[in-house]
Write a protein that binds this DNA or RNA. Structure first.
Length: 893
RNA sequence: GCCCGGGUGGCGGAAUUGGUAGACGCGCUAGACUCAGAAUCUAGUGGGGGUUACCCCGUGAUGGUUCGACUCCAUUCCCGGGCACCA
């Protein structure tokens, strides 16, 4: 270490000044590559990964550092525990905002992305995270893209990527199609634009081929149950049977249905096809044709959202056709209705109104017969619809069988008669993988004149994006790449035939699907990852990120990982062993209302405080006259403070505080740069961890951060005398571990902080450090051993100050690889302990007694207490319960 | 509607998994320092009663199990999240 890095030599550090300490250590770490990770088989590895960010133009907000701080704490802790830690950071840099900015301004997205990543890197580095920056990656880097395209090629060559004309989620506002996972309530996940379903030719990835494995392998993962459940639901496995129903009057024409309740076949009194079902027009009778055509058209025009809007009202039309129920030969009507989805199962169902709520509603609406074929488990008649498992009834050969057995017997019967078979169905659809955008990875594919599609040779990867004039998507669902003629028109190197390049690009998820692999071997030009690096570093030991990626990124990466597993690139079935979702950091928004309902500009609106407004359903109205008003938000920096009360900047009324997700539109975003400037990175890190448990949402409070800042100041003053003129000087330490009280406190703190770190309970760990800093030197000088231990314990949380203190103790090396302090176990247990004495469970007094005192002496000591005697009133206690080391409970008569 | 979470002081949150409820921090109150403020330090701070000793109430609500319940069980209310006609 250079002498200039010794504490106090930089000039007048008269008090704890993060601005002097923090940049110094950040530069030190960078210059010395302190956190550089190399494969070292002699050490156990630990791979701590953050979900890498999309570098937006807005920069970091305080939500980002929460997860980053947590992984950083663990990384620093694990290094001190002797682990070889891989802790990298990079950029998920393809994405819509840079492209939209390009459309508006003509700036190449590459340029925007570069500026944004530079800003993100600066911000992240100002927080003192222990990333190995030599491993930084960027998904838009051609060297990275090459391998994204290479993986796509592997999928393509194994038939896992195919082009199909499918009904897609077309979002006109974004000018692109979206994956099912990107559509929420019929709107785009990004921006909430309307999405419609239209048929288009698109590239699909066969994620459904991995449905079972994606489901099964969830079992062994240490993930939050909620996320596992979301993935299970999304995969949506159901077991049942496919059954063929013969259509009357159409020789040999069958309609196949999927049912999870083959045991209720005797109760099937009608069938329903999705309006889009391919057989609809063929089987519709002449009398019903007009009605059916009308209904089909009507539902086709309805958006997906409108179709699902009110599920209670069932609509449908009889096709006039009849089918034979294969179990009893009964003729049953075939209807079409939009409550049956074309995309699930076979797009047709058999309806058992007695035992399915939806069928029941439909049958009631259209007066179709309802039949009871299942009784309760006790074989009693239940109210219909009865959807629980029970016992079959009125079902001939399966009568009296419990549901599970009845299903099995029915499936065996169907298979024997060759009219059906047991089947498993998944809700999971194949992954729609092409986007009509500029800023994404081009597909490494060429299309020949004969219609065949060929993958570009490995030696020609990566296929780079062409330069274009205009970044806007082209009409008719074509990507901007369509107009890059020189790029588009190429020749097949093998046959010399003219060929066209694929003009769609990959979705943003492509790059993030495998980035955790590249971090292990970021500059390898011969493989996406070397076998050595893969074997050593994988899997990721701790992965922290937002819960919003539950079924998007986390499902897609698992899928790609399994494909790579199958082709021998990776050796683990799953990429992320332990996953933690950090909770959101919420902001305070300030609300009022005005009567400018149309958002007209230049209008002098009448403003109202929230107190004058009540909610009338979805609408906000004035309490006084019931007229409608619209909510408005005052950005944080414009709020006028009257003491503790937030007020409208120009008018004289208080604003309503609403705690919610931070967003630009609310003006409640806290910029970490401002916090670092004022309190320093160590305070920001500490505060975010001190807010509460990592996985819970918590509101940001500007007052709250003062508490941790004061703690750091106190910690600093524990070590230094503050000198008004000149440098602060180190205090006199006592030698060794100090007096017994101090030695015990040190041991207890080491023990407690260590346990909390292992459990990711950072908030309680910090509180233990606070207690330590307040108590340790209260009555005696700070012992040297305590000072050393404290610096090391503080290091994962507040690394800059910790390094400063460590250096002040005379150490010349960074504390990064110092062994983690070990608690003296003999000091953790006390000889003399305090035990609470309770009467009837209520604490009344306490006794001081030897820790190893036997039950009888504890009992005697407790009963001897004057206060206890008072409660007993001279009588014998009914019972005395002694909980070793904790308390005595006396049951009074 | 279904499935997960979660309801603890004025606020963020602790509580070794059935054993002293409210650690730690914010805020607040009082005091010290200061010409003054800021900063810092010290003490107090769940509610109610009492001069003290001390007593009563208290973990969304109601009941139950237990010597003892924030913790377990049942019913119920509220908040957050996810899924939502998936046959």
């Amino acid at each position: 270490m250079t002498p200039s890095l010794k504490a106090g030599t930089l000039g007048a550090t008269m008090t704890y000044e993060p601005k002097k300490i923090e940049p110094k250590w950040q530069q030190f770490w960078l210059k010395n590559q302190t956190f550089r990770a190399e494969i070292d088989p002699s050490k156990p590895k630990y791979y701590a990964l953050d979900m890498f960010p999309y570098p937006s133009g807005d920069g970091l907000h305080v939500g980002h550092p929460e997860g980053y701080t947590a992984t950083d704490i663990l990384s620093r802790y694990k290094r001190m525990r002797g682990f070889n830690v891989l802790h990298p950071m990079g950029w998920d840099a393809f994405g819509l905002p840079a492209e939209q900015y390009a459309i508006q301004t003509g700036t190449h997205p590459k340029e925007t992305t570069k500026n944004n990543t530079d800003n993100f890197r600066r911000q992240i580095q100002s927080l003192g995270f222990s990333y190995d920056w030599s491993r930084e990656i960027d998904t838009t880097d051609p060297k990275y893209m090459k391998w994204t395209q290479w993986i796509f090629k592997q999928l393509f060559e194994r038939g896992l990527a195919y082009e199909a004309e499918v009904p897609v989620n077309w979002c006109a506002a974004l000018g692109t199609v979206l994956a099912n996972e990107e559509v929420i309530d019929g709107k785009s996940e990004r921006g909430s634009h309307p999405v419609e379903r239209i048929p288009m030719k698109q590239w699909m990835l066969k994620i459904t081929a991995y449905a079972e494995r994606l489901l099964e392998d969830l079992e062994e993962l240490d993930w939050p149950e909620a996320i596992k459940k979301q993935q299970r639901d999304w995969i949506g496995k159901s077991e049942g049977a496919n059954v063929r129903f013969q259509v009357c009057g159409h020789d040999g024409l069958d309609i196949e249905v999927f049912t999870t309740r083959p045991d209720t076949l005797f109760g099937a009194t009608y069938m329903v096809l999705a309006p889009e079902h391919s057989l609809v027009s063929q089987i519709t009778t002449a009398e019903q044709r007009d009605k059916v055509d009308g209904y089909v058209k009507e539902t086709a025009n309805k958006s997906e959202r409108a179709r699902q809007a009110d599920e209670k009202t069932k609509t449908g039309v009889d096709t006039g056709a009849r089918a034979l129920n294969p179990v009893n030969g009964e003729e049953i009507p075939i209807w079409i209705a939009d409550y049956v989805l074309a995309s699930y199962g076979t797009g047709a169902i058999m309806c058992v109104p007695g035992h399915d709520t939806r069928d029941f509603e439909f049958a009631t609406t259209f007066d179709l017969p309802i039949r009871r074929v299942v009784n309760t488990k006790k074989n009693k008649e239940a109210d219909l619809p009865y959807t629980e498992p029970g016992v079959a009834t009125a079902s001939e050969f399966i009568d009296n069988l419990p549901t599970a057995e009845a299903k099995q017997k029915m499936i065996a019967w169907l298979e024997e008669k060759d009219i059906g078979s047991g089947t498993t169905t998944y809700k999971l659809r194949d992954w729609l993988f092409s986007r009509q955008r500029y800023w994404g990875e081009p597909f490494p594919l060429i299309k020949l004149e004969d219609g065949s599609v060929r993958a570009v040779a490995d030696s020609d990867l990566p296929v780079l994006l062409p330069e274009v004039e205009d970044y806007k998507p082209r009409a008719g669902g074509n990507s901007p790449l369509q107009s890059a003629t020189d790029w588009l028109q190429t020749t097949d190197p093998e046959t010399g035939q003219p060929a066209l390049r694929e003009t769609n690009t990959m979705p943003q998820w492509a790059g993030s699907c495998w980035y955790y692999l590249r971090f292990c071997d970021p500059t390898n030009d011969d493989a996406l990852i070397s076998e050595e690096a893969e074997r050593y570093w994988l899997p990721v030991d701790l992965y922290i990120g937002g819960a919003e990626h539950a079924v998007l990124h986390l499902l897609y990466s698992r899928f790609w990982h399994k494909v790579l597993y199958d082709i021998g690139v990776v050796h683990t079935k799953e990429p992320f062993q332990k996953l933690v979702n950090q909770g959101m950091i919420l902001g305070s928004s300030y609300r009022y209302y005005d009567d400018n309902l149309s958002d007209a500009e230049g209008v002098k609106a009448n403003c109202h405080s929230a107190q004058a407004v009540r909610m009338d359903g979805e609408k906000a109205v004035l309490k006084s006259d019931g007229s409608e008003v619209k909510e408005r938000w005052v950005p944080l920096n414009q709020v006028r403070w009257e003491g503790k009360e937030a007020c409208h900047p120009e008018q004289d009324f208080p604003l309503e505080e609403v705690i919610e997700k931070m967003s630009k539109s609310r003006g409640n975003v806290i910029n970490p740069d401002v916090v670092v400037d004022y309190y320093g990175a160590d305070s920001l890190r500490l505060y975010e961890m001190f807010l509460g448990p990592l996985d819970k949402a918590a509101p940001w409070s500007t007052d709250g951060i003062q508490g941790v800042y004061r703690f750091l100041q106190r910690a600093y003053r524990l070590f230094f005398n503050e000198v008004i003129e000149g440098d602060d000087t180190l205090r006199e330490f006592s030698q060794g571990s100090g007096n017994e009280e101090q030695a015990r406190l040190t041991a207890k703190t080491i023990d407690g902080v260590t346990q909390d770190l292992e459990n990711l309970q950072f908030n309680t760990a910090i509180s233990k450090l606070m207690v330590f800093s307040r108590e340790i030197a209260k009555n005696a000088a700070l012992p040297r051993e305590a000072a050393e231990a404290f610096s090391l314990l503080l290091a994962p949380f507040a690394p800059h100050l910790a390094e400063e203190l460590w250096a002040a103790l005379g150490h010349e090396k960074s504390l990064t690889y110092e062994p983690w302090p070990k608690a003296d176990a003999s000091l953790l247990t006390e000889d003399l302990i305090t035990m609470a004495v309770a009467v009837n469970g209520k604490r009344r007094d306490e006794i001081q007694i030897a820790a190893d005192a036997d039950e009888d002496s504890v009992r005697a000591a407790a009963l001897a207490l004057e206060k206890i005697q008072r409660f007993l009133d001279g009588k014998e206690p009914k019972k005395v319960i002694v909980i070793k080391g904790r308390m005595v409970n006396i049951v009074a008569p």
